[in-house]
Design a protein around this nucleic acid. Structure first.
Lengths: 253, 253
DNA sequence: CGTGAGCTTGACTTGTTTCAACCAACGTGG
DNA sequence: CCACGTTGGTTGAAACAAGTCAAGCTCACG
C-alpha cells in the first residue's frame, strides 16, 4: 500500500492481448453474444517496484486488483520462514477471485519485476455482478480455473519429483505467456534450433519456493534440464529448445 | 451414478449439527437477519457403498451434491497410478462449489464409508442464487473456504515433513468433526487421560494419499505419534490423547 | 572498492521410498 | 467348517532423492 504510487485511470499500455481476458473485459466492457452489455468497471492504476511486497497476508486490499504489467507472486509464509509460492501472476491476471467479495487478502503478493496493476472499484464490481448474469458466469469460470490450478499444484507437490515439478512449472508458464502473446521466436545460441523464447524474470529462489525445493537443489535440476538441451536460461530470458522433451519430463499428456 | 440408489426427498437423519451449515440451509431454508428468506432447494437423497467411486474426474454430475452421512474423499489420479487426495468430505460438506455452475466434476469422489448424500437441483440452485444475494454471499464464502483450504494443502505438501503433515491432517479432521458435533469424550485405555475420541474410518493408504507419502512411511510416522502418546488409533476410532503435543508437532499457532 | 544478491559445485547427512517378508482379520466359496 | 484370497498393518534393510553446509565465483550497485 504505502509503496503504491496511485494514478488516475491511465490507459493500460501492455496488458494481456487475449480478447477474452477478464481484466481486459472489466476495463473495456463487453457486448455479450446474448445482446446484453457488461459495462466497464472504474479502476485506478498503481505501480510497485520490483522485489516489493504489495500486500501482506490477511491485510485488507482496498480494491480488486489485476496485474497489468510485470510479474508478481502470491505467497504463504510459515512462522519459521519457509515460504510457498502459490502462483505467479502475469499481465492480465486477476489476483484473486476471493477479493471481489472479501477485501482480506488470503495470501501475500510480491512484485517480482516492476509491476503495474489496476485496482477495480469493489462496490462497482459487486453492483455490476448483481445486474449482470454474464459477468457472474465470467467470474465463476475464473473461480473454477483458480481452484483447478490449486488442485493441480497439490498433486504436483504431493506426487511429483523435482524434475517433473520444475519442468511443469516452466511448461505452464510458457503456455500462459503464449496465450497472452508474450512469447517470441528466437535463437539465442546459433547452433540450436529455434524455440519459444520469453522474458523470464524468476530467480532460482522463486522456482524453489514454487516447487517446494531448496534453492540449491532447484539449481541443480535446472542445470540438468539445460545440459539435457531442453531449455536455455540466461539474462532474464528463457527459451524452450526442446518442447517435446520438456513435455515428456513434465509428464504432460 | 450406476451405483447410486436414488430415493425421493428422504429426511436427512444424520447431517451436520451446525446451524450455519450450508447443506442444512439449502435443505431447510433460512430467514436471514436482513429479513429476506432463502428458500429450500429441492434435492434427492442417494446412497453409495463404502469403497465405491461416486464420480470420476471430468464426468458430469447431474446435481449439486452435499455429503449427508459418512466419509468420502476427493481425489486426482495420475496416469501412472499416483493419487492425491485433495480433501476428505464429511457430513455437511458441499462437495464442490464449482459444481453449482459447472456440472463437470473437477476430481473423482470416492466413498470411504457407506455414504449418503443429497443431490440438490442445479437449475433451482442457480435460480435461487439469481434472486437471493444472501445465498450468493453464502456460496462465495464457501468458495473462499475452499480455496484457502487448497492453499493450505499446497503449503503443507510443499514445505512440511511427514510428521507435520500427518499431525496437521489429524488435527484438522478433529476440528472439523468437533464443529459438527461428531467428537465424543472417552478413555479407551484406562491408564490414559481422557481425550477427544471420534470415528476414524481412514485406512493408512488414505492418509498416505492425502499427505503425499507412501503407505509404509505413513504407517511408521503414525506409529511414532502413537508411541509418543499423542494419539491412539484402533478399531476405526481415533483418540487425541495429547492435544497440546499434537498441536506442537502440527505446528499450529 | 566493497558489499550483497545470485549462481554453481562438491561432500556429506537426512528423510523418504522401495522391496520384501510376515501376520492378523475377514469374507467367501467349496 | 475349513481353505483360501484379499485387505490392512508392521518391520527391517538397502537404495535413493533431496536437504544441508560450505566454498568460491560473477555481477550490479552504491
Amino acid at each position: 500500500m504505502s509503496y503504491a504510487d496511485s494514478r488516475e485511470n491511465q490507459p493500460c499500455p501492455f496488458c494481456a492481448a487475449e480478447p477474452s481476458n477478464i481484466c481486459r473485459i472489466l476495463r473495456e466492457g463487453l457486448n455479450t453474444p446474448d445482446g446484453s452489455r457488461i459495462t466497464p468497471i472504474p479502476f485506478q492504476t498503481h505501480q510497485v517496484a520490483a522485489r516489493r511486497l504489495i500486500w501482506r497476508e490477511r491485510e485488507p486490499v482496498p480494491h480488486v486488483p489485476a496485474i497489468c504489467q510485470g510479474w508478481a507472486a502470491s505467497v504463504l509464509t510459515l512462522s519459521d520462514g519457509r515460504r510457498q509460492i502459490l502462483s505467479f501472476l502475469l499481465p492480465g491476471d486477476l489476483v484473486s477471485a476471493a477479493l471481489v467479495y472479501d477485501p482480506v487478502s488470503p495470501y501475500s503478493v510480491e512484485a517480482i519485476t516492476d509491476v503495474r496493476y489496476n485496482g477495480f472499484d469493489r462496490a462497482a464490481f459487486k453492483a455490476a455482478l448483481a445486474d449482470n448474469p454474464a459477468l457472474i458466469g465470467l467470474l465463476s469460470a475464473f473461480h473454477g480455473d483458480e481452484s483447478s490450478h490449486a488442485d493441480q499444484l497439490a498433486v504436483d507437490l504431493g506426487q511429483r519429483d523435482a524434475a517433473e515439478r520444475i519442468a511443469r512449472l516452466i511448461f505452464n508458464l510458457s503456455e500462459r505467456l503464449l496465450r497472452r502473446g508474450l512469447v517470441r521466436h528466437g535463437t539465442p545460441s546459433p547452433e540450436l534450433t529455434r524455440g519459444a523464447a520469453m522474458d523470464f524474470p524468476l530467480r532460482q529462489h522463486h522456482i524453489a519456493d514454487a516447487t517446494g525445493l531448496t534453492v540449491v537443489h532447484a539449481g541443480k535440476v535446472l542445470n540438468e534440464l539445460r545440459r539435457g538441451g531442453l531449455i536455455e536460461i540466461g539474462d532474464r530470458t528463457l527459451m524452450v529448445t526442446d518442447p517435446d522433451g520438456l513435455r515428456r519430463v513434465a509428464d504432460m499428456y
